[in-house]
């Protein structure tokens, strides 16, 4: 199962990155946004490092006709800036600001066996399920919606 092994490797890289960067720590994440208080600019450096590697890497990877273990690249195709995008991202930010966890930070934090991470991840999954099945009953699968993330 090389495909699964490499997905595991990608996950290990992700978890290592979140842990080393400090983004596993809600206090550090929140301090980035607290310019008027205990400001910690680390998150900007994390995003900068991740963006440069991803932008260059994606450019190289996209020269190939297809990924190694699939017949095509699964990329979002929607282009329009609509109300759900702006409203959803804004709601995400309010939750992130309250809890200090975002999806990418909270999943690796489960590996630290921190109870708060378990509570947050469970609540987030409940929110996704509520949104998907109650607010957007037509959107029950991921692929046809062509999401970014």
């Amino acid at each position: 199962m090389p495909a699964l092994a490499f997905a595991l490797l990608a996950g290990l890289l992700f978890g290592t990155g979140i842990a080393l960067s400090g983004m596993i720590n809600p206090a550090k994440v929140l301090n980035f946004f607290d310019v008027a208080g205990t400001w910690d600019p680390s998150l900007a450096v994390v995003m900068g490092g991740a963006l440069v590697v991803t932008a260059v890497g994606y450019r190289l990877v996209m020269r190939r006709p297809a990924p190694v273990f699939d017949v095509r690249f699964h990329l979002p195709t929607r282009r329009q800036i609509d109300v759900p995008l702006v409203a959803g991202a804004s709601i995400l930010g309010i939750g992130w600001g309250i809890a200090g966890f975002c999806p990418g930070g909270s999943v690796p934090a489960v590996g630290l066996l921190e109870p708060d991470a378990f509570v947050f991840v469970a609540s987030m999954v409940a929110g996704i399920a509520f949104s998907r099945f109650a607010l957007q009953p037509g959107a029950q699968t991921l692929e046809p919606r062509k999401t970014t993330s």
Binding site: G95, F101, S123, V125
Partner: peptide, 10 residues
């Protein structure tokens, strides 16, 4: 906060 993040990402 978790529920808001979940609704927001979806």
């Amino acid at each position: 906060g978790g529920v808001l993040v979940g609704i927001g990402v979806q």
